[in-house]
Simulated assay, not measured.
Amino acid sequence: MSSTSAVSGKPRHPAYVAVAEKRAADVQLKVADGITRFAGSMMFVYVHVVIFAVWMLVFEKSPWPTLTLVVSLEAIFLSTFVMIGQNRQASFQQAKADHDFTANEQELHTNTELTQQIHVLTQELHRQLCKPATPQG
């Protein structure tokens, strides 16, 4: 498993790579990610401004009841995509936390072993350097 992003080539956290690969393998999640990405862009705002302006000015004499219905339905679906995005972020954060915990535990174990070895070597060095003087006779 590579720890770099296919898009940017920048190094990525291994947990991010694992979650991204899992999400990329699921078509439904890829569609949800695409919709969420578009819905969170300024292009989404511009498209809606144009569509609603044309609708209200050209096609409907009294657009408010239908517009209210459409906007309410869209808000329901968009809030679902927001929650999907939050779930994705939570999944990544949990995977990262798990990975970091494991790495930190390994680091702690290594540091403890090194500290113990340094202690043993220091005691041995102290014993060698501080030998009691033998009486000269």
Score class of each variant (00 low, 15 high):
Met1Gly: 08
Ser2Arg: 12
Thr4Cys: 12
Ser5Ile: 00
Val7Tyr: 07
Gly9Glu: 01
Lys10Gln: 15
Pro11Lys: 04
Pro11His: 04
Arg12Lys: 12
His13Thr: 05
Ala15Thr: 00
Val17Glu: 06
Ala18Trp: 03
Glu21Met: 06
Lys22Arg: 15
Lys22Asp: 00
Arg23Lys: 11
Asp26Ser: 13
Asp26Trp: 13
Gln28Tyr: 09
Gln28Ser: 14
Leu29Met: 13
Leu29Phe: 05
Lys30Phe: 04
Val31Arg: 07
Ala32Ser: 10
Ala32Lys: 01
Arg37Ile: 14
Ala39Asn: 09
Ala39His: 10
Val45Leu: 07
Val45Thr: 09
Tyr46Ser: 02
Val47Gln: 08
His48Met: 08
Val49Thr: 09
Ile51Gly: 04
Ala53His: 12
Leu57Trp: 00
Leu57Met: 12
Leu57Ile: 05
Ser62Lys: 08
Pro63Glu: 01
Trp64Ile: 15
Pro65His: 02
Thr66Leu: 13
Thr66Ser: 14
Thr68His: 13
Leu69Pro: 03
Ser72Ala: 09
Leu73Asp: 03
Leu73Lys: 09
Ala75Lys: 06
Ile76Glu: 01
Ile76Trp: 05
Phe77Ala: 04
Phe77Met: 05
Ser79Ala: 12
Thr80Lys: 04
Thr80Asp: 13
Phe81Pro: 03
Val82Phe: 11
Met83Cys: 07
Gly85Asn: 01
Asn87Met: 10
Gln89His: 11
Ser91Val: 02
Ser91Ile: 01
Phe92Arg: 14
Ala95Phe: 11
Ala95Gln: 02
Lys96Asn: 04
Ala97Val: 00
Asp98Ser: 03
His99Trp: 15
His99Tyr: 15
Asp100Trp: 02
Asp100Arg: 02
Phe101Gly: 01
Phe101Ala: 12
Thr102Ile: 11
Gln106Lys: 15
Gln106His: 15
His109Met: 09
Asn111Met: 05
Glu113Pro: 02
Leu114Pro: 03
Ile118Met: 05
Val120Gln: 09
Val120Tyr: 06
Thr122Phe: 01
Glu124Leu: 04
Leu125Trp: 07
His126Tyr: 12
Gln128His: 15
Lys131Cys: 05
Pro132Tyr: 04
Thr134Asp: 06
Thr134Met: 07
Pro135Gly: 00
Gln136Cys: 05
Gly137Thr: 09
